[in-house]
Amino acid sequence: MSEAVIVVDEKDNVATALRPLEEGELLQVHIGGRALDVTVLQPIPFGHKIALTDLEKGQPVVKYGEVIGLATQRIGKGGHTHVHNVEGQTGRGDRT
């Protein structure tokens, strides 16, 4: 595979890994026309997401140019972004 990660929309602050990413790896991520350097903070499995910027607690996680959830803790740039640090806001049966 030529690219290690893919970004769907220019507004996205996460990318999807197209192969397992290793801790410490330096990635060049292409977002639209520009390139962004991201160092992988911890191992990220194939298909999982990596933060492209520092995300503060409560900040929206954006993919497809849309909000897919909120960060439940600070996620550093290059961090694994998944169920352990992101919470969806859709269909919240716990909030009725």
Binding site: T16, A17, P45, F46, G47, H48, K49, V61, K63, Y64, E66, V67, I68, G69, T81, H82, V83, V86, E87, G88, Q89, T90, G91, R92, G93, D94
Partner: peptide
């Protein structure tokens, strides 16, 4: 009930899908 018990499903999560909104989009 809470739809998040089943959406995304365990296999979806293992594969990297984090939230229902992500799956839906």
């Amino acid at each position: 009930l809470d739809i998040r018990e089943a959406e995304p499903g365990p296999g979806n999560i293992e594969a990297g899908l984090t939230t229902l909104a992500e799956k839906s989009l």
